[in-house]
Design a protein around this nucleic acid. Structure first.
Lengths: 233, 233
DNA sequence: CGGCTGGTTGAGTCGTGTCAACTGCGGTGG
DNA sequence: CCACCGCAGTTGACACGACTCAACCAGCCG
């Protein structure tokens, strides 16, 4: 609880396009996104970029660099927002005081990585249309969880260039895939607002399996939480 | 120490092709690979497979499923070997007794994920030749660490079909890329033995950056290890 | 009003996949 | 010991998906 309160204190406003940290920077802190979207990225020698992960409100940024001395990827804001940084030391304190929360933190980090792993699968083995559909559907599910989907509509502040960098495709091809998805009646779009007329059909087309987004914890975690006197997640 | 000794007790022989667990199986244990190679994989609807990670002796298998109730990927042995399973409960005991080892375990899991993330980058943005070169070079570095490279030569027990499943390419194209690499004098191969005449050139061609394989821990970890009376990693 | 950024569309190229035939090797059984 | 089978790898022909380049369009902001 103390940690959560501390977090609120350190809240910081950030603006669209702002770089939270660069590749190769020293690793000293992590962030919780409170408002706005962010993404982590890698710049390549040939000038192209690979976006690794898109962070929505509630996500923790930087866990991927835990235990490294250098950042393996940069992080930038997509739109204006608020982040709450916290330090290594705070995390270590947590480890010392609550095995239950430790397990919870790890579970969160693992879940984030599961999304990356899933993308590896569909980037490696699916068509461009499926990749885009899969990514859109994932965002839809994640937004729905934090209550950011209203009547099936949600907003996607990513440019098609950025979508291409997420999915390993060219911006031009993203545009083409959007028109295909529209022609097939799977994805409607006006400005940054998206709407899926038939979410089920979209999920099937993308071969979407939501197991990797499952948020329930195995029963062992609950007994652990009871063993130590602290809040479960 | 007690945990490490327990591990030795549970050592189990496994044979080539043996499935350690299937996708969707219940998550109950993890494994340390003592001998042999293993890989984790996902089977797709269209019949193809994506290999997620190749495990070498010393690697921990299954951390990616930590906190999930179902396995997100299956794991199979590539050749004969020995694995040492351990349970959730043993891991929790560790969390309770040593914050330092907890941080170390997380660091190990994060490093494994870093390899997956790196592959996402080069599968998304590199050519087939670079992908193969990058993967081979990574294996080379990892094998070198555990002393499995002799005079620059090492063995690669993966079939070209499996290499294709790792890199999101067809087996036929893997074969072509091998001949290209040979013609360019970058990779020599006879049976399962590989040799790089000019490792530096290969690394440059693959745009290989070894930051993600860095094994050193930031200084904060060492002070943590001293704070609690237990072995550092 | 003009420039800039993001998106759309078309034409042509190139990388990778697919299918198929063929080779070489290792293991197995007669 | 040899004949056979089967699997892994190689090579070629062809198809197709995605990229590049370029022109064009639509908002948005100065």
């Amino acid at each position: 609880m103390a940690l959560l309160l501390e977090l609120e204190h350190s809240a910081r406003k950030v603006s669209a396009g702002e770089i939270l940290w660069q590749e190769n920077a020293r690793v000293d802190l992590f962030c919780v996104v409170k408002e706005g979207w962010a993404y982590s990225y890698r710049n390549l020698i040939n000038g192209s970029m690979q976006i690794l992960k898109v962070y929505l409100p509630g996500d923790v940024i930087g866990m991927r660099d835990f235990g490294f001395t250098q950042r393996l990827s940069g992080v930038a804001m997509i739109n204006d927002g608020v982040v709450c940084p916290f330090t290594y030391q705070q995390l270590f304190d947590l480890f010392r005081h609550s095995p239950a929360l430790t397990a919870g933190i790890i579970a969160i980090a693992v879940r984030q990585q599961a999304m990356l792993t899933e993308r590896l699968v569909y980037i490696g083995r699916h068509t461009a249309q499926q990749r885009l559909a899969h990514f859109l559907y994932e965002i839809y599910v994640r937004l729905d969880r934090v209550g950011a989907v209203e009547a099936g509509r949600f907003s996607l502040p990513l440019s098609q260039e950025q979508l291409g960098d997420v999915l390993g495709l060219s911006a031009v091809h993203i545009s083409r895939m959007f028109t295909m998805l529209r022609d097939e009646g799977l994805v409607l779009r006006e400005r940054q607002q998206l709407y899926f007329p038939d979410p089920g059909a979209l999920a099937r087309m993308a071969e979407f399996n939501d197991a990797y987004l499952d948020e329930s914890l195995p029963s062992v975690f609950h007994s652990l939480a009871q063993a130590a006197p602290s809040n479960s997640l």
